[in-house]
């Protein structure tokens, strides 16, 4: 699109200023995580980079067993993202390559309905159910209830619908059964979509707070997000922001890295199709 030079300059300025404003909180958090306690406690606040970065991260790491929390968060996020991908690919495959089997519409709606039932709507009974299963304070409770994915099922179904039908026919002529076709043809073709879904679901799971809060009690089963609260709650008097921010940076780094790596596939594989 044609734009004038003034418009161009205005756009640059607006974008730069907005981005500075959006980035500021995180930059300030990062800076604070390098300060000594005195520096972080000064008013007016200091914006220089301090020299206590390692001390603060070590303190945060030790204070709330950050290593364990990061491990737990990584484990459940990878497991849930992978579980959602596998389950939704299988379901989407069923909905696209087997014609109008009996009950198909009902099954499809049942899976889509996940969208309508966020955790708060069913939190008490789900909690009790997990308790009855004896899953309290286990990885099962933190992963399995999240395995179904309406988003994923829709995403893969939509993608499969764009794959030419001839490909399945060719595979049949080539002697490949449905599972082989899925594994050897559809799965490799779905790479972009799988990466996109992995990114979304990893971040989604990493950022879960309420459910891990109620189904875990022991410190070795807690996740990073709860770790933040533990860091904050330890502060009865003046907050030790330098240490808290070190913990915060650790908590936000993994999803941020995944986002930056997979951003491309996410936009191509997911965001561009979402509105259909």
């Amino acid at each position: 699109m044609q734009i004038t030079r003034t418009q161009r300059a205005l756009a640059h300025i607006t974008l730069t200023v907005s981005i500075l404003l959006i980035v500021f909180p995180v930059v300030f958090a990062l800076v604070t995580s390098t300060h000594s306690f005195q520096e972080s406690f000064s008013f007016p606040p200091k914006f220089h980079v301090g020299s206590h970065l390692l001390d603060n991260y070590r303190a945060a790491w030790e204070r709330v067993h950050m290593g364990r929390l990061l491990f737990n968060s990584t484990l459940i996020s990878v497991a849930v993202a992978a579980g959602k991908i596998v389950l939704s690919i299988l379901a989407a495959f069923a909905f696209t390559y087997f014609g109008e089997f009996r009950g198909k519409a009902t099954l499809f709606i049942l899976i889509l309905i996940t969208h309508m039932l966020p955790l708060p709507i069913r939190i008490v009974p789900t909690f009790e159910l997990v308790e009855d299963f004896g899953w309290m304070n286990t990885y099962y409770a933190l992963t399995i209830p999240f395995f179904a994915s309406a988003t994923g099922t829709l995403l893969f179904r939509q993608f499969f619908l764009t794959v030419p039908n001839d490909l399945a026919d060719a595979a049949r002529m080539d002697g490949a059964g449905p599972m082989k076709f899925l594994w050897k043809v559809l799965v490799p073709l779905s790479k972009t979509n799988m990466l996109a879904l992995f990114m979304i679901e990893f971040i989604y799971m990493w950022n879960q707070y309420l459910w891990p809060l109620i189904v875990t009690q022991s410190n070795d089963m807690r996740v990073v997000q709860i770790g933040l609260k533990m860091l904050l709650a330890g502060e009865e008097q003046a907050a030790e922001w330098n240490v808290i921010m070190a913990g915060t940076i650790l908590a936000m780094l993994p999803p941020l890295i995944i986002l930056l790596i997979l951003q491309g596939s996410f936009v191509k594989g997911f965001a561009m199709r979402q509105e259909k």
């Binding site: 030419p164 060719a170 002529m173 073709l189």
Partner: peptide, 14 residues
């Protein structure tokens, strides 16, 4: 034991 050539060629893109 027959082979078929499709209109869209149906080659596996990957």
């Amino acid at each position: 034991d027959i082979a078929m050539v499709f209109q869209s060629y149906a080659l596996y893109p990957h």
